[in-house]
Amino acid sequence: MELYFYTMRIVCLLLLILTASCKNESRQNEKAVDLDYNEDFSTVPLEIYDFEGLKPFLKTNTDKTYVVNFWATWCAPCIKELPYFEQLNAAYSDKNVEVILVSLDFPKKYDSHLKPFIKKNNLKSKVVALDDNDSNTWIPAINPDWSGAIPATLIFNKEKRQFYEKTFTYEELETEIKQFLN
């Protein structure tokens, strides 16, 4: 019996290693976005949460499918894929899909970088900022396989949940979202 439990532990461990090794990393060349504004953007509304406050955005009991993208204005690959999330939000809103963009910008950059970015790019998806230093708790809580690198994306509805530590093209996003809409 002891051997049985011991073996089961090895199996679990191996499965864990295997899932961890299946991450599909694709990285793309991208120029940093120049953010140099003289205007005052501090009045742009922005919801700011710690992880407890963010939790309600990470689960649902409704029939909606949520696409939660973790990004920051300083993250070049994030900025590159952001328009695809905007496009998805527009194209699939009538199919009960909502995109939420969770910014990990530093709080001292909210007024100087994040808010101007939201305004200038006229972001239509809901943007919230996560301000919580205890990343060692909330990163594995969002997904055990997440190394903490961004961009990262979570797609879920009440039945299904999938986490992606990768960059997306629009086609890839569509392929994934369709698996949630069947």
Partner: peptide, 29 residues
Amino acid sequence: YVENAVDALLSGQQIKEPQTRAIGCSIKL
């Protein structure tokens, strides 16, 4: 975390938190 880990190694103790996670920039390969 890192200081705790190295201090533990220097004094021959177990590292209490051998693995932690933080947000970072993806490595550009």
